[in-house]
Design a protein around this nucleic acid. Structure first.
Length: 340
DNA sequence: GATCCGTGGAG
DNA sequence: TCTCCAAGGAT
């Protein structure tokens, strides 16, 4: 038994199980991937989309994916560029590529059926410890230990007494989460979802709703007088980064119709795009008939940003690599498109 | 282990 | 306006 459990008495754990699971039975959101008719594939798609992305933005895209690709085989049969396009503005387009690659692996290695064990799931592209445990528990009722940012925050407050979880997932947090799992398998699966939901709806990062919390009287953080975080989170750089430029260019590519797949992005001297990216100066030369006027304006702006941003060759190469990694394809004449 | 990877809503 | 951050994963 890990030492972490010794700091929490078993009576409090049992009360937390009962109250949080009971709260969940009444307060849980009616999310489509939680319904009885949800398939393992549907749950897997939701887990990919929900990585670092709020539920409200995932919902419409998930429904469209389920309508279009109700099985892994149907997605695997399409070019990866279609997955990136259908990903829309969820962000982190590499997740779409990984989900497509995972579907291909499922078809090739698992006869088209999502595997249920955490070990098999971990072998899939884009599936890490959290996602493997979540799919295993939510789709296959295997009581794997699910540890996400919501669960870590609830554990930190309720049992450890901290305002926030550690900056990066620690072994101690994993051990605590394992120790807290109910012995009954089905109760454990409910616990996984219930603690996550409590973190998402009540025990939120900012302005938690402690008045509505079912375990407020058990909470170590509340008992300690809600101390401030023991560290200051560092923000994510965005403005002026090449990441921002990639986002703008990918946005245009996503919105370009498949029937008009390419736009011209060539240097005024006629060099092909890869050479342009590595060169000193470049201007946008667009084919207006192939893109809407709004899209054209956006790509011009993106291109200007890239020009101003990437003063050095190394940064331009980094930006180019990022675009290629996200599914951008170069044509011989310097045109670009999404794969497929 | 530190960094990077998109996007948009909330405060 | 500006910062924070949301069901993480890969390198």
């Amino acid at each position: 038994m890990h030492k972490g459990k010794e700091f929490v008495d078993t009576s409090s754990i049992a009360q937390a199980h009962q109250r949080i699971n009971g709260w969940f039975s009444e307060a849980a959101r009616d999310l489509p991937w939680r319904r009885p008719d949800a398939t393992p594939w549907g749950i897997m798609v939701s887990e990919f989309m929900l990585q670092q992305t709020p539920v409200v933005r995932v919902l419409p895209v998930w429904h469209e994916w389920m309508r279009r690709w109700p099985t892994p085989a149907l997605l695997a049969a399409e070019p990866s560029g279609e997955a990136v396009r259908a990903w829309g503005r969820l962000g982190y387009p590499r997740r779409a590529l990984r989900l497509h690659a995972a579907a291909v692996t499922i078809v090739e290695e698992y006869d088209g059926a999502v595997p249920g064990s955490p070990e098999a799931l971990l072998s899939l592209p884009g599936v890490g410890g959290y996602t493997a445990a979540a799919i295993s528990s939510f789709a296959f009722r295997i009581p794997a230990v699910v540890v996400d940012t919501n669960i870590r925050r609830v554990h930190a407050r309720l049992f450890t007494g901290n305002a926030l979880p550690e900056p990066a997932l620690t072994a101690a947090e994993n051990a605590l989460a394992a120790d807290l799992m109910p012995a009954d398998p089905e109760q454990a699966n409910i616990w996984n979802a219930a603690v996550m939901e409590l973190g998402a709806l009540i025990c939120t990062a900012r302005s938690p709703q402690c008045m509505d919390c079912p375990v407020q009287d058990l909470c170590s953080w509340v008992a300690a007088g809600k101390p401030e975080p023991h560290y200051t989170p560092k923000g994510q750089a965005w403005h002026g980064t090449d990441r921002q430029v990639r986002g703008a260019i990918m946005g245009v590519l996503r919105e370009a119709p498949v029937s008009v797949p390419r736009m011209d992005l060539v240097h005024s001297n006629g060099q092909a795009v890869p050479e342009v990216l590595l060169g000193e100066h470049f201007e946008p030369a667009l084919a207006p008939e192939s893109i809407g006027e709004l899209a054209e304006r956006r790509v011009v702006e993106a291109w200007k940003k890239l020009s101003a941003l990437t003063a050095d060759k190394k940064q331009r190469e980094s930006c180019l690599e990022g675009l290629l990694r996200d599914g951008l394809a170069f044509e011989a004449d310097g045109r670009i498109s999404l794969h497929g």
